[in-house]
Amino acid sequence: MADETCPHMQGCEMYEIFTFSETLAVWKTRYCQGDFKRCERFQRSARGQPVPVNLLPNGHVLEKP
């Protein structure tokens, strides 16, 4: 029985990035289509706050390699 999917998926830059590459699908399974309430991006968006484009669901901030 799957959880609901994240209501803030559409327009989420990270979701687009996860969709682009098969390799990153694990993020979708864990957060977007799973336990989205634990996603740092969702929490901020739900509070109406701007979501930094490089913020990952687990709170990690993506930096240049």
Binding site: S21, T23, L24, N54
Partner: peptide
């Protein structure tokens, strides 16, 4: 933060492995 497609791919792969373990993100083409 600005990243080219290459940089983003590399950063995402690293972050994925860090979050889910080294086996989570095999090098696969787009």
């Amino acid at each position: 933060v600005e990243m080219t497609a290459e940089e983003l791919r590399a950063a995402m792969l690293a972050a994925t492995r860090e979050a889910f373990g080294p086996d989570a993100a095999p090098d696969a083409p787009p």
